[in-house]
């Protein structure tokens, strides 16, 4: 199973990662963080993540702190 680690306290809700995920596994969240932004959420119930790390490469704030591939 591939997955990403998300630090929601770092997310500024630019949503650039939402667009680059080829499997559309990152969505705009509905719960605000301490910055007042609505950070993204990673939803992968069907284990579709391919561990490409494009979301982490795109994120300007290193809110995606780790990408793990098996």
């Amino acid at each position: 199973m591939n997955y990403i680690k998300l630090d929601k306290t770092r997310c500024k809700a630019c949503y650039l990662c939402v667009d680059v995920c080829p499997k559309k596994l990152i969505i705009k969240g509905s719960q605000p963080n301490s910055l007042g932004h609505f950070p993204v959420e990673f939803k992968d119930p069907d284990n579709k993540c391919i561990g490409c790390a494009m979301c982490a490469m795109r994120c300007p704030d290193i809110a995606i702190t780790e990408v793990v591939k098996n």
């Binding site: 809700a13 994120c59 300007p60 704030d61 290193i62 793990v68 591939k69 098996n70």
Partner: peptide, 28 residues
Amino acid sequence: TEKSVFKLPKSLKAGMKFPFCAGCDHGV
């Protein structure tokens, strides 16, 4: 076997956060 394909670079200070505006390319 789990393998990290992306991690916080060691040359960045642990725990640092960029103060840039949302979506600014400086952080990248």
